[in-house]
Amino acid sequence: MGLLNRRSAADSVEKLEKEMTIINRLGLHARPAAMFVRVASRHRCDIWVAKEGEEISGKSIMGLMMLAAGQGSKLHIRAEGPDAAQALQEIEQLIQSRFNED
């Protein structure tokens, strides 16, 4: 019974992805990257961020900065885990808010 429950919980793991565009003027530099990671790290799900075929963990500041995602860059963001939907929503909000810049 317990085993079965666990399996059904595992089945409910969300896998979501979304395309997002960086709109703040300076792009995803150190400060926005740190804010991104702060939001991503609050969630249990795995988060992956891809740009032009390069994919890194959304919980790594150095990774995010490596993408050099300037204004207008399109990011492909995947979230995998129990709170994936929530995570994607918060990340989208953060990007939409221009990381409190501009």
Partner: peptide
């Protein structure tokens, strides 16, 4: 450096 790299790309 990162910011000017992104600006150059854009």
């Amino acid at each position: 450096k990162l910011i000017s790299l992104m600006e150059a790309q854009g």
